[in-house]
Structures are given as C-alpha cells and as structure tokens.
Nucleic acid binder design. Structure first.
Length: 276
DNA sequence: AGCTGGTCCTGATGGC
DNA sequence: TGCCATCAGGACCAGC
C-alpha cells in the first residue's frame, strides 16, 4: 500500500486527531515488526504532548515534546482511528494502539514490514537518524529540479526505474508511482539513469510531482478501510495509466502495455510512448 | 505456486 | 592496485 501519497494521506487524516493532544498510553501487542519495538517506547512517549505530525519520505514523524516517534507502514501497514469508547476488539494484525486524547490510533500490518521507533531530541535532528540520513530530496521541495536530478544521476548506471525506487535521489516514489511517473515522462524504465538528458530530467521531475500530487488528491492507491470508519478508499489505482495494465491498450497510443521485471519488482510501460 | 505497495544487509563489481 | 560508491540478490512476512 504505502508509497508517499498513502503516507501523506494518512498524515493529513491523523494530524487533526493527534496534534495538541497528550499520549495517554501506548499498547504493544506484537513488537516483532521490521525491527523489534523497544520495550521502553511506551514509557517514553506516555504523557507527552503531540506537537505536530510530520512526514519525511514514507516515514511518519510524531513530533513530541522530547523527541520524535517514527512510524513506517512497510508494505502492508495502515493506521486506523477509533473513538476510545467505540473501538472494536483488536484483530491478529493490530500490533499497536496509541491512545491519544479521545481516540485510539491502531497500527495494523499483516506482513510486519513496518516500524515504530523513538529518536530523542537530545540526539539531534531526526534528519540525522541513520534510517533517515541517506534519504533523497522530497519531491515537492523546490530544490528538486532538472539540474538537481541530472546531477544526482551522474555515476548511476542502473536503470532509471530502480534508481527512482532506491529513494536516495528522491524519496517517496514506490513501485506503482515509479512506473506511472516514467510513463508520464515518456522515459523507458530500463534507460541507464546517467543517460537521461537534462530535458528528460526536467520532464521526470514534473512527472513525479504530478503523479504524486494526483495520487494524494485521490486518497492514494487501494486503501480500503484506511483511516477510521469514515476513511476514504484510495482511487488512484483506477486512474493508473500503466500500472497493472499489462496487455491493455495505452491510453495515449493504443499499443499494448508491457510488463517486465526489474530487481524482482514488476514494471509496466508503453513500448511505443516510452523510449530509451 | 506465484504474485503483492518497502527497505536493509551482504557480497560482488567496476570506475576512478 | 586499492578504494569506495554502486549494484544485484536475498531476506523479512502474510494474504490472495
């Protein structure tokens, strides 16, 4: 599920529920996520006020008084909101509850690739945390432009699709949106990254921004029962131009969309519209 | 059985 | 040659 748009949709939904409220408790039912949840996390965050809810790449940043609680949704995670007096019994994949104000925020993650950890303010900016330190630029940062991208791709011989996915150049572009962005930019996914001209970098920058922005507007991709009972289901997948459409006609030229595998992940593209 | 939205780690590769 | 960034592959899980 979660690429940048899904995390941003989550952030926007959770922010009004948690900002300014006190964490009254944190209940861990299953600490074995990607990394074990530290036993003392609950004691650390309990009693602290949530100053704001931020995002860096696909990481959700819970800015508390004495540091940052960081959550990541991995491949299959989601946060759901329940009123404290109306929360259903937790299911087998409901690993964590954060009780904040009148609500319970419940982290559900069947595949357990998600994460939840603490970064104390005394250790400096969250940006310097090892898990976040090597992240690329935010796609909506005005400094992300053709020159930046062209420069960043120097020395990268890997296919552009895989460089986008790696997240050390620009963050937030996961498997679905990498295919969609390259289609919009009319760039073939196997093109060695360093071979992209400045003009094509310009197109790619714009395409990444447009695709991510559209996905955020549509509530992300296939996020059923996403945030609380009134949470919207994502609509983006129905708007995908190439992702999951192998064999179907290209919406631009009518040629059949192709599916290939790059780094064990599926890539979709139009062999006519997208050139190396 | 084989596919699925992410990321980290290891060991190999190859340019300077 | 040696260093070091980059790259490829496997690993982690459960559900459809």
């Amino acid at each position: 599920m979660p690429e940048l748009p899904e995390v941003e949709v989550t952030r926007r939904a959770l922010a009004p529920v948690v900002e300014g409220r006190i964490v009254s408790s944190l209940i861990v039912r299953e600490p074995r996520l990607r990394w074990p949840i530290a036993p003392r996390l609950a004691a650390t965050v309990t009693g602290q006020q949530v100053r704001s809810l931020g995002r860096r790449g696909k990481y959700l940043l819970w800015e508390l008084e004495r540091g940052t609680m960081v959550s990541h949704l991995g491949m299959s995670g989601s946060w759901r909101v329940h009123r404290q007096d109306a929360a259903p019994a937790p299911g087998p994949h409901d690993h964590v509850d954060v009780v904040v104000g009148e609500h319970i925020l419940r982290l559900t993650d069947p595949r357990r690739f998600g994460a939840l950890f603490w970064h104390g303010a005394a250790r400096g900016s969250i940006e310097r945390h090892p898990r976040l330190a090597k992240l690329g630029i935010e796609p909506f940062d005005p400094r992300f432009d053709a020159s930046f991208l062209h420069h960043a791709l120097r020395g990268r011989r890997a296919p552009i699709k895989q460089v986008l996915l790696a997240g050390d150049v620009v963050v937030g572009v996961g498997n679905i949106y990498a295919s969609e962005s390259l289609f919009r930019a009319r760039i073939h996914p196997t093109t060695p990254a360093l071979r992209l001209s400045r003009l094509r970098c310009e197109r790619l920058v714009q395409a990444v921004r447009e695709v991510l922005a559209a996905a955020i507007e549509l509530g992300g991709s296939s996020l059923r029962d996403y945030v609380g009972t009134d949470g919207a289901e994502g609509e983006f997948i129905g708007n995908a131009k190439v992702y999951g459409r192998a064999g179907e006609p290209c919406v631009v030229c009518g040629r059949k969309i192709k599916r290939i595998v790059q780094g064990q992940r599926a890539t979709y593209y139009c062999p006519n519209c997208q050139r190396r």
